[in-house]
Structure formats: structure tokens, C-alpha cells
Design a protein around this nucleic acid. Structure first.
Lengths: 141, 141
DNA sequence: CCGACTTACATCGAAAATTGATATAGTCGG
DNA sequence: CCGACTATATCAATTTTCGATGTAAGTCGG
């Protein structure tokens, strides 16, 4: 049987080593989260971005303004709504997100190499399930 | 074969739904991280705690002071070193960490129920591997 | 066991991030 | 085109974080 409680604990603990990378450009967690969300979800209005982030709207407004000044985020007017803008990553912003991803891949690769072939096979098999779990979570709430 | 790149992406994306819980007591990410670390690693000196957290020492000092005032963290003198104190969670602090864990378990349970039995079996099998991966990460750096 | 060095943590002032309240400007149904 | 609503911006106050520096306890060679 699947022990969800233990699965949760294991993921919580795994994340302590997965999430914490030294962040290059003095970006805090909120900023990195915004960049990651924009990377995944393409152009978003500020309000839609707000739904994912643990920030109030004024904080997000000023964070986005700062990321824009840093050349990581672009905004263009929303053709469908004069009040809104569409936010997306600049190529520099994409580069940064990719670079953090690459760091994680490198780190994980080093660990995975120490596993047995059987253990690696288990991980390989879990990829699609984790993906489906994420998709379910995004549909369900 | 195990595609580490894709595994990394899948975990990154999964985390966007796993990590972000509405936090009860106005605790920010740094505070939650400290509480989680103390919960996992038992009593720690400030300097040892510092190694896990993405904060500079003065910021951690004041964060811990605040958590202490909020009744979530305790400090007692380190018997082995007069300069240091040992930090640990109060029972309220433990309660809070457990409560967040329970929220995640609830959320995950709802998702897992929508999986097929085969998919659940895959997840069950991956628990030990994820655990081992974490252990490796903590030994390796 | 003493002086020099190191380590653990605290303090301080300044900069940055976040918030609640409120303003502004665009949209939409009738 | 009016009133209600929505998207985002602005503002002042609070909180968080930081770099520089202080203080006190520990360590270590002679």
C-alpha cells in the first residue's frame, strides 16, 4: 500500500536539498518563484501570476517592476484588455531559470549515479506518475 | 534509462503545488524553513542552522529571536560551549510543522486517489529511493 | 596559564521587501 | 454613457535582510 504520509515526509526532506541553491543575482525566493512560474506558464497577466505566488498584489507589482529593471522580465500591453499587461521572461530571464535547472540536474546526476540500476529504474518509472500528479493538482483545486 | 533532466523538471513543477500552502501565522518562507529544519534535525546551534538556511547570520539571529517571542522556538545554553545556544522547537512549533505536514498529506491523498492502482504502486516503490537520494545528498557535499 | 587568534553570536544602521489602504484607469452590462 | 467592477499602481508603515562591527567565550602554542 501507498503510505501518503511517508511519501509526503520523504518529499519534504528531499526538497531541503533540492530547492536550496545559492541564488546568483541576489534574487530571493519570491523572485525565483515568479521567474519559474513565468517560465512554465508563458505570458501571464499580473493578476493571474498573483494566484500562484504567495504575495499580495502591491508586492508583486513592485517585484515585477524590479525584475523588469533587471532585464529578466518583459511586459507588453494585453491587446485584449487596456488595464492589463502580459508578463513574460526575457531571454536573460529564461537563461537564468535554465541555469538553475541545469544546476539541479548536475546535482541530481551526481546522486543518481550512486544508486543501483534497480533504484534508477524505479525513479525512471515514477517520472510519469509525478507528472500526472501535478496535472491532477492543477485541475482539481 | 533514467532521464535526470526530465525528472528534475517534473519535481520542479510538482513542487509548485506541493510547497505553496497558505501559511497560517504570517510566517514567511525563511521562517518556515527554519522551523522545518529544527523539526528534522533536532536541537541545533545557530551556526549549524545557518548552514541550511539561505540567510546571513544577523538575519537568522533576529528571525530566531522573533520565533522565540512567538513561542515557536526555544533556546537553552549549550552545555559544551558557553558562547552557543541550542535551538529547538517548542511544542507549539512542532504542532505548527506537523499541521503543515498534515495539510500536505490531505492534499496529496486527494490526488493519489485519482491515480490508478498501478500508478500508486509506482509511487509506493519510489519512496525508499527518494529517501536514499536525500541521504546521499546529505553525505556527499 | 597567558597572550594571540579564532569562533559564536549580538547589535546597529541602512537598504530592500511586504503589506493594507487607497487611487487610477479601463471594461462591461444595461 | 452610467454605475459597478476589475487590473494594476502608488503610498506610508512595517518587517526582513544585510554588511560592518562588537563582545564574550573558546582554543592553542609556548
Amino acid at each position: 500500500m501507498l503510505d501518503v504520509d511517508r511519501l509526503t515526509t520523504v518529499i519534504e526532506d528531499f526538497n531541503t536539498i533540492f530547492i536550496r541553491l545559492p541564488s546568483v543575482r541576489r534574487l530571493n525566493f519570491s523572485a525565483l518563484s515568479v521567474l519559474h512560474t513565468l517560465h512554465r506558464r508563458g505570458p501571464l497577466r499580473l493578476t493571474d501570476l498573483l494566484a500562484t505566488e504567495q504575495l499580495k498584489q502591491p508586492a508583486l507589482t513592485s517585484l515585477v517592476a524590479k525584475l523588469e529593471q533587471d532585464g529578466l522580465v518583459q511586459r507588453r500591453p494585453d491587446p485584449a484588455d487596456g488595464r492589463a499587461s502580459l508578463l513574460s521572461l526575457t531571454s536573460t530571464g529564461q537563461e537564468l531559470v535554465r541555469s538553475r535547472h541545469t544546476n539541479r540536474v548536475t546535482k541530481l546526476t551526481g546522486l543518481v549515479e550512486q544508486l543501483t540500476p534497480e533504484e534508477r529504474a524505479v525513479l525512471a518509472g515514477s517520472i510519469d506518475v509525478l507528472h500526472r500528479l501535478t496535472a491532477l493538482a492543477e485541475d482539481t483545486p
